[in-house]
Write a protein that binds this DNA or RNA. Structure first.
Length: 614
RNA sequence: GCCUCGGUAGCUUAGAGGUAAAGCGCGUCCUUGGUAAGGACGAGAGCCCGGGUUCAAAUCCCGGCCGAGGCUCCA
């Protein structure tokens, strides 16, 4: 809601003509003309985000108004509906409700004159012109806890348990002694609300800058990152990894638009559920939004398809570059929380709840596999409504057994969101705080809202739909990987993600020989480069160390003339004698089946520009 | 969004009303090096942006932008 306060000598209005059609114009309970002296005139625009909680908006607006009236030392208030303060209007019914309720809220405390909604009106206002006589405020539907202590009581707290693979269920806090360190940290954060690492910067933020991977860009909005070649390579490898994994599983890749028309009912409803955290804008005469996940486009595809029961489960997949969430300013942090992020997103239309449950487990297990490949430890949390838990208790036990590790169990008294059950996986960062990454959820609402149906011999049916991200957002995956490095003796990336996998350091002018070795590695799609700079050996080795190169080799007369290389293995700090062939084999095995992309930077270090780490 | 702290060379930081510093990096030269940083010289600064106070502002004040942390939040 937008409010424009004018401290006025007087305000006078007269309704002239109804605006819009139907019963838009208010006729009952408001005067058609009026005048007030020595007042604060409040031009008011109710916005779409306010519809989330009209009572909260009224309360917050009243608070602002009291504050302003107090400063201006007046008790006369004119409430004047004025659509032109925002481009994102609430529906007329909501707007009228807010105006009426605000009037009711203020009456008694103030002398209130309200001007009617939905009319073209003439008005005259005389602004006093002192420094505080024109003020504007933005009020949201967000409840401030301090102002409304009773509000926090409203949502009943969840029950928390830990379930072990053998089916044993116990209270989460009591189970802490039986689980590993990460799960303990997870319970402390989720259940006990214990803050850890207060005041410290998470290590990944400095690393992403220092290693020239990712940086901020002041010319963009907050939480929109830029990727330098080294980071871009890591990012592309991660994306390729996830794409391959999902396609292998049976996801069918698509690509869908990043912006949607809020004029479409299904879009408006789906978007409306998620409150204010969206990028919204006008384009021509349309109100648009940027997607916050790939649901919109994929649901739209499914809606337009003729889906036979034989097509189920139907898995539509997309690497959403980008999804957008306008997180609050102070919530955005490093790679952990962004406004523009990259979410691998698959939606699966299923025949019925039985198939949905089956898919949920299979997809959860696939998520756990990324844990292996990425070297990130994940702790699972199964969250569901009490109703779901009671109906599916045995099945939940099977799930935990299948996942093969203890799971945090959250039982919600009632359904708040579109899902009835979901499984999240959390990595624990260097400060003991969770980074929630993969997730799979059973959505019981969207098929109906978007008109997604499948057809069998009998007729058509709405489908339960799974939302799935096998890895979580790509940026968060990198955050988790970098956080991991902070606890290592020798911090490093896995070889398959290292921008340079092998570096050669020539002495006695053996650059050409090194170039040949680079080419031999390239034949196997392995990334090598040559530090041909005119620097001391010690200095170039220091550079290989700070560049986190997993294998580096000094190449001089001995190597060119002999048949072994002294290969420095960063992980162990050992120098091993290997033939060229052995080096190739070692690196080859190290990368294994994981993606192999070409180098993004020149072969010679002397040609590497310094990208600023910002 | 609110609160606290910060923004000085490409990077990391020192300085605190009166001519703007250092290390790293960069350039040139010397060194032709054998496993974590060889030497010399040099270039490089709208001191985040906009206002204000002052003879004088990077420095003090106000507003904004960006970053970190805290609150809230992550659908």
């Amino acid at each position: 809601m937008k409010l424009l306060f004018i401290h006025s000598d007087h305000l006078e209005f007269e309704a002239k003509q109804k605006a819009g059609g139907g019963d838009l114009a208010e006729t009952d309970g408001v005067p058609m003309e009026g005048r007030m002296e020595e007042c604060v005139t409040v031009f008011t625009t109710v916005e779409s985000g306010d519809e989330e909680d009209l009572d909260a908006v009224v309360d917050n607006a009243a608070t602002e108004l009291r504050d302003v009236a107090d400063q201006l030392n007046t008790t006369n208030v004119v409430l004047y509906p004025y659509a032109h303060l925002s481009e994102d209007l609430a529906g007329p019914d909501a707007a009228k409700t807010v105006m009426r309720n605000l009037e009711a809220e203020l009456t008694g405390e103030f002398d209130v004159l309200r001007s009617p909604f939905g009319w073209y009106k003439s008005f005259e206002v005389s602004c006093k012109g002192h420094p505080l006589s024109e003020l504007s405020r933005h009020v949201s539907a967000h409840r401030d806890e301090e102002k409304d202590p009773e509000e926090t009581e409203e949502r009943e707290p969840s029950d928390w348990h830990v379930m072990t693979p053998d089916g044993d269920l116990q209270g989460a806090v009591g189970a802490k002694s039986d689980v590993n360190e990460d799960m303990q940290a997870f319970i402390e954060d989720e259940v006990e609300g214990i803050e850890k690492g207060a005041g410290d910067e998470p290590p990944h933020i400095e690393l992403m800058k220092e290693k020239s991977l990712v940086g901020y860009d002041e010319l963009s909005d907050v939480g929109n990152l830029r990727w330098y070649p080294r980071g871009k390579l890591v990012r592309d490898c991660l994306m390729e990894y996830v794409n391959d994994l999902v396609v292998e599983y049976g996801g069918m890749p698509v690509e869908t638009p990043i912006m949607y028309d809020l004029g479409a009912r299904a879009i408006d409803e789906h978007a409306g559920k998620f409150g204010e955290r969206q990028y919204r804008f006008e384009s021509g005469d349309r109100r648009m939004m940027l997607r916050f996940a790939a649901c919109f486009g994929q649901f739209s595809i499914m809606r337009d398809m003729y889906i036979s029961e034989n097509d189920l489960p139907l898995r539509v997949y997309e690497m959403s570059t980008y999804s957008f969430r306008r997180e609050q300013r102070g919530e955005v942090a490093g790679l952990k929380r962004l406004r523009a992020f990259t979410m691998p997103d698959m939606h699966t239309a299923t025949e019925d709840m039985a198939q949905a449950r089956e898919e949920l487990v299979a997809q959860a297990k696939l998520a756990l596999q990324t844990s292996e490949d990425l070297g990130i430890n994940y702790e699972p949390a199964i969250r569901m409504t009490r109703e779901f838990f009671e109906e599916n208790r045995e099945w939940v036990q099977e799930v935990v057994d299948d996942l093969g590790k203890p799971a945090l169990i959250e039982v919600l008294p009632e359904r708040h969101h579109y899902w009835s059950a979901k499984i999240d996986f959390a990595a624990i960062d260097g400060l003991g705080r969770p980074i929630e990454n993969p997730t799979v959820q059973i959505d019981v609402e969207s098929a109906e809202r978007f008109g997604i149906e499948y057809h069998d011999g009998e007729g058509s049916h709405h489908t339960p739909i799974l939302h799935y991200s096998p890895s979580g957002g790509i940026e968060r995956v990198l955050a988790a990987i970098l956080e991991n490095t902070a606890t290592m003796d020798t911090p490093r990336l896995p070889t398959w993600l290292s921008p340079t996998q092998v570096r050669f350091i020539p002495v006695q002018d053996h650059v050409e020989y090194c170039d040949e070795l680079v080419d031999r590695l390239a034949e196997r799609n392995l990334r090598a480069d040559v530090d041909d700079r005119d620097e001391s050996v010690g200095k170039r080795i220091a550079r290989a160390e700070t560049d986190w190169v997993p294998y580096y080799v000094v190449v001089g007369d001995r190597e060119v003339e002999g048949d072994t290389l002294g290969v420095n293995v960063r992980e162990t700090g050992e120098e091993l004698d290997m033939s060229v062939e052995e080096l190739l084999e070692t690196v080859d095995e190290d990368v294994g089946e994981l993606p192999r992309k070409r180098r993004y930077l020149p072969k010679h270090l002397s040609k590497h520009p310094n990208f600023t780490g910002n």
